[in-house]
Design a protein around this nucleic acid. Sequence first.
DNA 1: TTCACTATCGAATAGGTATTCAATGCTCCA
DNA 2: TGGAGCATTGAATACCTATTCGATAGTGAA
Lengths: 337, 337
Amino acid sequence: MPTERSNLREPAIGGLAPSQLRLLTKVARMYHEHGMRQPQIAEQLHISQPRVSRLLKQATELGIVRTTVVTPSGVHAELEERIERRFGLRDVVVADPGQPAPGEQSVLQAIGAAGAVYLETTLTGGDRIGISSWSSTLLATVDAMRPRPTPVAERVVQVIGGVGNSTSQVYATRLADRLAILTGAEAVFLPAPGLASSPAAREVLMSDPHISDVLATYGGLSMLLAGLGSLEPSPLLVESGNAIADGEQEALRELGAVGDICLRFFDEKGQAVRSPLDDRVLGIDVETLRSIPRVVAIAGGSRKYTAIRAALRGGWVDVLVTDLGVARRLAAEPDDR
Amino acid sequence: MPTERSNLREPAIGGLAPSQLRLLTKVARMYHEHGMRQPQIAEQLHISQPRVSRLLKQATELGIVRTTVVTPSGVHAELEERIERRFGLRDVVVADPGQPAPGEQSVLQAIGAAGAVYLETTLTGGDRIGISSWSSTLLATVDAMRPRPTPVAERVVQVIGGVGNSTSQVYATRLADRLAILTGAEAVFLPAPGLASSPAAREVLMSDPHISDVLATYGGLSMLLAGLGSLEPSPLLVESGNAIADGEQEALRELGAVGDICLRFFDEKGQAVRSPLDDRVLGIDVETLRSIPRVVAIAGGSRKYTAIRAALRGGWVDVLVTDLGVARRLAAEPDDR
DNA sequence: TTCACTATCGAATAGGTATTCAATGCTCCA
DNA sequence: TGGAGCATTGAATACCTATTCGATAGTGAA
């Protein structure tokens, strides 16, 4: 098959003579269909290995070799990519509750499972994880995780105090505890309410070494696992004794707040909303939060849509785990950047 | 690297959890479509480079990533021209499976890839495409298409209802859906069975506005993408629950039918064969079908030879994408016009 | 013919990927 | 409960591929 003479007039498809095309297809077949290595092909055709490489490249450019990725049904790769691009996220995971109009419970379960898988595959060791507590979404996530015998994280730190009465405070630390057990990490609790009764009370608490020591660890976090709060009443918040009084919620809404991450509120555009509440929150501050390399938000359900969108717009989040419904709406958002 | 597998069904969820599939697809797209290097992907997804390599390998094995070598047009130019002239076609594309005696799977892949290239090069925008569903050939075609950044078609319309059980009905719409996504077009589905249980049932269905609205769009199609059916049992038809009962097939054969396009049957000479079935088919009718400016048939394999020849003789088709074996036989046909 | 320019080629090697290997976890059976 | 056997993992690395770079040949103008 070696060389042909350079024919004068040939139809020339793609700017190339058919003889060239035949060589291209031949090499492409040997490589892609017969699995031959380039040196083998080179030897058989009496050409050099770099030449084979160049021919293959050319064949790909000309579309003679085409590689396609078929998205299996039930996987929403395009959707995820669109959201990643639109909001500049590192990773998006879309969980499919598998029902046309899923209830909150199904959504919770779906994103919980997806979040768990995400953590299981991406926590490989050494991470210092912050976890915002009291979110039923995070609870669902942690519940769906399988215990790892080998430590896959160094430390799990509670970045927000407990909320509400002492019962739910316990519950808040439980989340951090569970995650720590599951990942084999050391757990660091924040033995304090998430919301002090006054700025002064917060100062007092923060001067307690038990607490300040914990706060000092926030700077070294490599990852934050957070739920997103919406300013609609959430079942859990209500249950846990209305951490944020109705009046305060109202005030926040009037300031334009639509949601929060770790009790730091933001408006529709994702801009931080300052409020008197800020000085009573016992937890990670905005600056430290934003300096964490990987902030993973797990949140879904139409009730939280506005909050999720705002969090993405404001760049509060690097990785989002959400449900199909929210994902579709996010993907349909006009690009406002 | 053995490529030979009798993988005749859908994307092949090889007993894997959806979350696994999701990751496979994600990695595959990052690598093959976005051209990212493995270390990059590893970093972004917080997994190790060897893992990325293994995931890619697995994705290839599962058929999520498929690489095909397409015969560039022009290699078989003479053959193509001869068939065009003999049967008065607008265009013929001959795909070379590249093996002396290719199995159905190789033929499928070859003509699928060739069909994909044909579509990619001839769809330039504004087309309203009808697509006949449930054809494994069309599936192979759509699977081999690369996504286009700009929309190249206006609308993709399903011109035949689904066939068989509800599972394969979904599968039928998926084909239209995929094509719509790939071309950036709006998808219009026909939410109905392709074959009603009785003429009366068909009437009822057709009076449903969801369905009649779709039927009304058939008149404006600028192009039809169709498979060709032969009256030999096809693996897919059998699998999807014998849409056409054996007895009916037999009856059709006795009427002289050798094949169909969109469930409209024709005999050896390409003449339409009227049968009781006609009044049960929910899809495009013969007259509308024949008025479509460009009917592209993608079909190959010796099993379908008689049907293909008949379709050409009857002038059902303007463009044919087929395999080398069929092409050679077609070119050797005596001119009987 | 000569010269300048460009295209093409292969040796060397940089770059990227797949595999090996040892460690560890899981499953199943005694 | 213990442990044999199999599966999975990432670090190290062998392997394979793509690119660089200098050499050579073709091309066209003077």
